[in-house]
Design a protein around this nucleic acid. Structure first.
Length: 217
DNA sequence: CGCAGGATGGGCT
DNA sequence: GCCCATCCTGCGG
C-alpha cells in the first residue's frame, strides 16, 4: 500500500517549515468527546479545509474558545435555550454551527459531544496554509497579517457563511485534518473575548491560543 | 502604534 | 427596541 505525502512550505510569519498534508478528515470520535476544554485545546494546530472548486483552501487553527452549554452564561445554549438559531448546537459533535453577529459577520463553530449536549467551540483565528491567493482576494487589500486574525475575518477568508450551518465537519464542503502537534507549553489559555454580559463566566480561561503566533486575534 | 466611533441586521424581550 | 462570541477607518502621537 502506498500513500501520497504532499509537503507544503508553510506560509509566512510564523516561520518557514515543510509540513506533510495528511489529507484525512478527523474521526467522528474526535468530535464526540465530552471534555470540551480538551477538545478546544486539541483543535490548535488542526487544518480547516474549505475547497473552492477543485482547489484546496486551508488554514491552521491558532485560537479557539469553548462554550460549555447549559451551564455557561456566555453560551447561546445557556439554560437549555432551544430556538431556531441554537437548535444546531443540540446536534451530535462534528456539526457546523455558523451564526451571524453585529449585522455583518459570521462566526464558525464546531459542535462537540453527543447529541443534546449543546457545547460548541468557536474558531477564532487561523494561519493561512493553502489557497492563500484565494484568501487574499476575498479579504480585499488587507495586509497579510489581517487575513484570518479574528473570527469574522476567518469566515470571510474561507468563504464560510450561514449556508454552512448544520452541515457536517466530515462532509465535502468543509472539514478538519491533522496538521501540526504542539506541546502543552506552546498553548496559552485566558479569558474569552466579547462576553462582558456573562457575569461570573467572563473571566473563565476557556480561550486557547498558540503562543507567539502572529495570527492570534 | 493606540483608540473612538460607526457600520448594519438578526435574535429575542 | 436593545443587544450582540466584530471589523475597519481615520485621527492623533
Amino acid at each position: 500500500m502506498h500513500t501520497d505525502i504532499v509537503c507544503l512550505h508553510v506560509y509566512l510569519l510564523s516561520g518557514a517549515i515543510d509540513v506533510p498534508i495528511v489529507n484525512k478528515k478527523l474521526s467522528k470520535e474526535f468530535y464526540l468527546r465530552e471534555d470540551t476544554l480538551a477538545v478546544a485545546r486539541s483543535l490548535i494546530g488542526k487544518l480547516i479545509v474549505v475547497p473552492e472548486g477543485r482547489r484546496r483552501v486551508s488554514a491552521m487553527i491558532v485560537e479557539t474558545e469553548a462554550y460549555l452549554g447549559e451551564t455557561d452564561k456566555a453560551a447561546h445554549s445557556f439554560g437549555g435555550r432551544r430556538t431556531k438559531r441554537t437548535e444546531v448546537m443540540y446536534a451530535a459533535g462534528g456539526t457546523v454551527y455558523v451564526f451571524f453577529v453585529y449585522g455583518m459577520y459570521h462566526q464558525l463553530n464546531v459542535v462537540t459531544g453527543p447529541a443534546d449536549h449543546p457545547h460548541a467551540i468557536l474558531l477564532r483565528a487561523a494561519e493561512p496554509v493553502e489557497g492563500v491567493n484565494v484568501i487574499r482576494e476575498r479579504r480585499g487589500k488587507m495586509p497579510d497579517k489581517n487575513l484570518t486574525s479574528g473570527p469574522g475575518k476567518l469566515c470571510i477568508a474561507l468563504g464560510v457563511d450561514k449556508r454552512f450551518n448544520g452541515e457536517s465537519f466530515r462532509g465535502k464542503r468543509i472539514w478538519l485534518e491533522d496538521f501540526r502537534e504542539f506541546a502543552d507549553g506552546d498553548i496559552i489559555t485566558g479569558p474569552r473575548v466579547g462576553i462582558a454580559y456573562a457575569e461570573e463566566f467572563t473571566e473563565m480561561p476557556w480561550r486557547f491560543w498558540l503562543k507567539d503566533n502572529p495570527f492570534v486575534s
